[in-house]
Design a protein around this nucleic acid. Structure first.
Length: 560
RNA sequence: GCGCCCAUAGAUCAACUGGAUAGAUCGUUUGACUACGAAUCAAAAGGCUGGAGGUUCAACUCCUCCUGGGCGCACCA
């Protein structure tokens, strides 16, 4: 929407500058921002400040020259004026605003874009090891990944949401061993439970399930065989459990990719062969190393700080090789962009995997790793230490039953993904005004109620095409209209920067403006014309709040 | 020791990637329900943006150093 307006204006300003003798190359990119204050207009440009230096004129003088030469489309802008140190502020014409709010009221999709041009994006997130239930950080990553996917879809990308299952490796053996020990214990044997095994209660539960189905028939087997028998059973149960947790949470994946698939298709060998073919393998001290430091970024600096062993001197691959193979696999599936959301303990991992992806043929700028930072749980405002041993570990399932999926997601999404998050369990549980998710949902429910009231009282049946929008001229109405119309820009910006937290912030601001408008102006009144106009504004606001919450994966109830 | 993230109101966080008077929410104080939902609204108080320099018309934002937190730096996964 506003996008086209900006583009036209950019060209127009550029034309004026060139006419006044500025070399086209000397003109920086002409950007606009929406000012904080309405008195500064709807769009503001600092272009005069940018070129003033080269022209050896004062910024205000340059701005005046631009304004003098500018012809504005009267259907879009009402005026443009010089302000402050040299800003040029543009004010949108009422006609233009009213036309947009009409679209919003009618429920027309005015907020999606085609920026992504149908490019395919692979977004991998959560990817928890299948040796335990999902935890709080997984819940955060799940919420964020889901929204990033929605945002990218809205921006015209095609997104594949993918979950990688590490069902091979040392930790899966440890898991099998842990089950085996709990199995013996449950059958009355004395055991020593090592610290490096998985001590959670859920392991005991798995052992009990096995006993329930199969009894004590594994008692007689040697430990190796018992572990081999229990491992796949346990993994399967965990994977199913994780899938269920995510489903309850409202997050669905398109692809569940198992590490074992890579092994079956010999993709580790192929990946190694490719690295070798590209001259990225060296042999030292009996081990085979991926020379990741040889891969340089745009500034010609290595993107990894040391080379990495991919095959140990005993001939066994390290964990890195399957991960490289997996990324090669993603590339081979033809994605234009690959995004990984990793946990906070994996940021040291970005360099090596970026290097590998680059060797695999994907340009570095098309690969992005996002870090879902750690979550500190608080209870009554005090740190709530999580310890598996003490049994006060909080899983994602417990979180959902405790605070509800909507509130949990909303809390995670309010903060930018890469900053540490304090999650106050008691606050999230409160169904009061202290909880921002209800603030937004309440606004939505309130609008629904107003619309319902208007309908049942039979006062108005607005024909949205015939409504006289010019009746909406109070400051509250004007601000609300403008906020509704920001929606496309917010979504696009959030999508391109992988920044979900802008959306909660936006819907909160929108809800606030609505509440403010509602408190001051009566929607349904004797004045039919005015009622119709205000009702249209309500519809537009409701549609946007609803769309915003949908992108966030949070419900928009019409009654609370 | 090296690298990454962070430090903004009493608390939790924003600030459109360098713009105009640094904004919300909670908490505190004071007002507002005899018509559409008070889970709401209106208003007040609260800041040397951790510290010191630098870059320029302009710095919370970029550069250097310092302080104080979190997390990484394996032939572990």
């Amino acid at each position: 929407m506003l996008e086209q307006v900006k583009e036209k204006l950019q060209k127009e300003i550029k034309r004026v500058l060139v006419n006044s003798g500025v070399a086209a190359e000397a003109i920086p990119e002409i950007g606009f921002e929406t000012p904080k204050h309405i008195k500064f207009g709807d769009l503001s440009s600092n272009i005069a400040l940018g070129v003033a230096r080269n022209l050896k004129k004062s910024p205000r003088e340059v701005a005046e020259n631009i304004l003098a030469g500018l012809t504005l489309d009267k259907g879009v802008f009402s005026k443009a004026e010089l302000a402050g140190p040299g800003f040029i502020n543009f004010f949108l014409a009422d006609e233009y605003l009213f036309n947009l709010i009409k679209k919003a009221a009618l429920g027309v999709d005015f907020y999606s874009s085609t920026t992504g041009q149908g490019k395919r994006v692979n977004l991998e997130f959560v990817s928890a090891n299948p040796v335990g239930p999902l935890n709080i950080v997984n819940a955060r990553a799940a919420a964020a990944g889901n929204v990033i996917a929605n945002l990218l879809e809205n921006a015209g990308f095609r997104v594949t949401k993918e979950f990688y299952i590490n069902n091979v490796g040392v930790q899966t053996n440890t898991f099998g061993k842990s089950i085996s020990l709990r199995y013996l214990e449950a059958l009355g044997k004395k055991i020593e439970f090592p610290a490096d095994c998985y001590g959670g209660e859920y392991v005991k539960d798995i052992a009990k399930v096995i006993i329930g189905k199969q009894g004590d028939r594994y008692l007689a087997l040697p430990e190796e065989e018992r572990i081999a028998a229990f491992k796949p059973v346990g993994l399967e149960m965990m994977i199913e459990g994780q899938k269920k947790s995510l489903k309850d949470y409202g997050v669905e994946f398109d692809v569940w990719y198992q590490e074992s698939q890579l092994h079956e298709k010999h993709e580790l060998d192929k990946a190694f062969a490719l690295l070798k073919e590209r001259g990225m393998i060296k042999e030292e001290e009996g081990a085979k190393w991926f020379t990741s430091t040889a891969v340089l970024n745009k500034e010609n600096k290595p993107i990894d700080d040391k080379d990495r062993v991919v095959i140990k001197s005993d001939g066994v691959p390290t964990y890195l090789l399957p991960d490289i193979a997996y990324h090669f696999n993603k590339i081979s599936r033809g994605f234009d962009n690959i995004i990984d959301i990793l946990g906070p303990d994996h940021h040291g991992y970005i360099g090596r995997i970026s290097a590998a992806v680059s060797i695999g043929g994907l340009p570095l700028e098309n690969f992005r790793v996002l870090i879902a930072q750690q979550v500190n749980l608080l209870k009554d405002g005090k740190p709530y230490k999580m310890s598996k041993r003490q049994g006060n570990f909080i899983s994602m399932d417990e979180l959902i039953t405790e605070v509800g999926a909507d509130a949990a997601k909303y809390f995670f999404l309010r903060r930018s993904l890469d900053s540490h998050l304090d999650f106050d369990i008691d606050l999230a549980k409160k169904q009061t005004d202290e909880n921002p998710v209800f603030y937004v949902q309440y606004a939505h429910a309130r609008i629904c109620n107003v619309i319902e009231f208007a309908k049942t009282s039979g006062i108005i049946e607005p024909d949205l095409n015939a409504v006289d929008y010019s009746l909406l001229k109070s400051p509250e109405e004007s601000e609300l209209i403008r906020k509704v119309l920001c929606f496309p820009d917010i979504l696009k910006h959030a999508a391109l920067n992988y920044d979900p937290h802008l959306v909660p912030k936006y819907v909160e601001e929108l809800a606030q403006l609505y509440h403010s408008f509602y408190a001051k102006h009566r929607v349904v009144s004797e004045d039919k014309e005015l009622s119709a106009a205000r009702l249209a504004l309500c519809l537009g606001t409701r549609n946007v709040i609803r769309a915003g919450l949908k992108i966030l994966g949070v419900s928009a109830p019409s009654k609370m």
